[in-house]
Design a protein around this nucleic acid. Sequence first.
DNA 1: TTGTATGCGTTATCAC
DNA 2: GTGATAACGCATACAA
Lengths: 329, 329
Amino acid sequence: MSGIKEVAKLAGVSVATVSRVLNDSSSVLPETKDRVCEAIEKLNYQPNLLARNLRRSETKLILAIIPSISNMFFSEVVRGMQNKARKYGYNLLLCNTEDDSESLKVYLNLLKSRQADGVIFVSSAIEQQTLTGIAKTHPVVLCSEYYDGLDISYISIDNKLAAYQAVQHLIRTGRKRIAFINGFDYHISTRLRLEGYKQALADNNIEFREELVRQGTYGLKSGLRVMRQFLSLEEPPDGVLAGSDMMAIGAIKFIKQSGLKVPEDIGVVGFDDTRATSIFEPSVTSISQPMFDMGQCAVDILLKKINSLQGYEEKLILEHELVIRHSTV
Amino acid sequence: MSGIKEVAKLAGVSVATVSRVLNDSSSVLPETKDRVCEAIEKLNYQPNLLARNLRRSETKLILAIIPSISNMFFSEVVRGMQNKARKYGYNLLLCNTEDDSESLKVYLNLLKSRQADGVIFVSSAIEQQTLTGIAKTHPVVLCSEYYDGLDISYISIDNKLAAYQAVQHLIRTGRKRIAFINGFDYHISTRLRLEGYKQALADNNIEFREELVRQGTYGLKSGLRVMRQFLSLEEPPDGVLAGSDMMAIGAIKFIKQSGLKVPEDIGVVGFDDTRATSIFEPSVTSISQPMFDMGQCAVDILLKKINSLQGYEEKLILEHELVIRHSTV
DNA sequence: TTGTATGCGTTATCAC
DNA sequence: GTGATAACGCATACAA
């Protein structure tokens, strides 16, 4: 393949001029510009980005660190990220950690060795110390999960309010004993949702009961498992809030297996509003998170950080929505 | 951040020696090696990959072009690709085309400008001409869909046999009028599956009927739509093979809406065996494709091509499996 | 407006 | 076994 020199020679100019038309920096005489463009066409010249990247010390690559790509929530976020990134000429370096801290390290090395211009952590299990270290030297944005104490940009939803509304909905539709299948407690969303859950109970004069809150692992099986525990209680719940759609579906499956009916006997609300909610029968009432938007905004914020030398930080909370389906009414 | 020069100075050696221990190329005296490593540690030195990439003219990046990341089939393939790539120090540049040919072009420019060492097309809608052009100058592997006439490496399953077995299964479980919701006809899988479908009918002395074959778009809605057409026939089918799990689920949904029962009145078989098959009720009988393996093998083949100067090509067919669930028995 | 020359941080080819 | 040094292909400060 031909380089910038050949183009320069063919156009009868210096490499500097070719570089100028390439980046349309400073002014080039229209006629010389035409000559250069012509030469570029003729030689089918493509600038070598490796050289440009070295020179400019950038890669136009964004590290996207996510727990698992085969989770509908994350894949939607990734779609949003990619969509926005493309608009700005950036691309996504995809990093599936599968919650393995070893691979996380490997991927973070990509940042240190300048293979990427910045990083977006989507719901990542990363130590605060590691995170602050990275944030000191590289542009970082947190997506979905974040740390409240740290001054690091993030984008998320109002998890407390969301859980509050979900519980309110269950109560308003006649339930009184609301159980909660929550997520990992190192996630801030888990703690905030628990607050919202408690608040809703309190506002409706319902006593909080320890045994009605359990942790799941976001998957279908953990929904089944926790629901089995709930149904074996002396006073089983008549409403369930789950921290993910898959756990909600798992719960519903177990309820049906037990000969009970959804929504008649027990109402169930999920979280995220992934496509699974409308595939499953009964369709699942769920808190809709703007996953695509979150991905887009995360990239937006990251690019702002990349292009602003000072310590720009932005915390963004996006709107959610309770989508009511047949698992509650 | 410190460069190789600082390390060299601190260790009291030349940059060449530092480079040697970095790549453990040729022999370095153990004691000098120790000194260098020590200096690297002390300065927390990370080689600048941009410079290395320019020098070596490689990026250790693989372009992964897929129609949509939010499709379970593709996300599993991507997981496999990433998994294997990591083992060899490669990373994935994720490109969601959303079936937009414009963005495809953009992504292919990454190859031309040397931002990636090779490309894997997963079920991509790409013109043969474009493809052969790229394959002439860059390492290319096709995954899932491919072109039979071209000498370009690919990995897939035996789609004809798979469809054959699915239809056999429907017939063996008592069905006689088998309908087929097929995929896009620019996909080779679509054509091969049709062959298998016809073959199975022929082998069972069942007449092929044009009106029992329709095209869908792989999504849930198209399954619903096509099933409506089938049920409005004078002689509706008692068995359905769908080219994707989502279409199978859509079909089942419509069947149930129509007051008929699955599997009692109509048996349904899907394709791919994505997780949706076991989430849905009834669970869906499906042809299991080794998606993760396909991703892994695709990367394997691509790396072989990258590391072999001559025109290495490999065509691989992986095993599939009919997984029987409640939608047929 | 355009050309010259230097540097980006490595790796690799020579010498020694 | 080790050290100078020339590339890699481009962008830019400076000079013209």
